[in-house]
Amino acid sequence: MNIFDTFANPAKFITLSRRLSPILLGLACLLAFTGLILGLFISPEDYQQGHSVRIMYVHVPAAWMATVSYTFLAVMSAIAFVWRHSVADMAARAAAPVGLIMTGLALFTGALWGKPTWGAWWVWDARLTSVLVLFFIYLGYMAIWDSISDKAKAAKFARIVALLGFVNIPIIKFSVDWWNSLHQPASLIKASGPSISGSMLAALLVMIAAYMVFFFWTVLIGTEGHILRTRLSRQNKKKVSSITTIKNGVIA
């Protein structure tokens, strides 16, 4: 059986979701619990930033997931665009609110980390501004689905916006290299290896894993929800149209 078929076929997807979702939820809880113990109790304070460095364990995973969620959304939209798989559209749609929350959390926790470290809640530099733009792209994407009643038309517009909005992702990633920024450059993924001490890195990686698994859990059940909602609404429409036909038949 092709894995692509499993994700593209709504019935197979529902079976997969029902089997996989409890495992993902359990794993996300376990990782989050471990990450919180490591981040709040075991990892040391920073020699310059003091305890404020503990904001990193919720800020960095949220910021990562903001871009990972959007990349996922764009890839799903591209799949829907090329192969017309409705499940891919539903997965992209399910990822958007989670991505929006992750982006909001990255902005909020970033502001609370910025004040004690930079002395400012907010600066209009490239990294912060491009993440704020991402927040509005998510809002725009969700608004399209909610405001256009013809779902085929909404899907078409949403795919285009998702693909155009993807331009912002490399801008976010490389903004700290391309422009002067208060924001620190990459410290996890770099050629010379991570520049964070071992115990801090362990806590951070576990929290990133927790957020990642949580994201896939919410997207999995969110997509299942969209499939079931579509099915039920189709069944209801069929029922209404058959009632109308009977009524028309009687009148005729």
């Binding site: 939820l25 709040l40 304070e45 003091g50 305890h51 404020s52 503990r54 904001i55 919720v58 800020h59 949220a62 609110p97 989670v98 929350i101 909001g104 959390l105 909020f108 926790t109 609370l112 980390w113 004040k115 004690p116 949580f214 859990w217 919410t218």
Partner: peptide, 24 residues
């Protein structure tokens, strides 16, 4: 108190917890 940074740290953890649990 987290060495005086508690006022910044706890709202971050609280909001993250509330929003993620909320959407889940």
């Amino acid at each position: 108190a987290m060495g005086g940074y508690g006022v910044y740290i706890w709202p971050c953890y609280f909001l993250s917890f509330v929003l993620l649990i909320g959407i889940g």
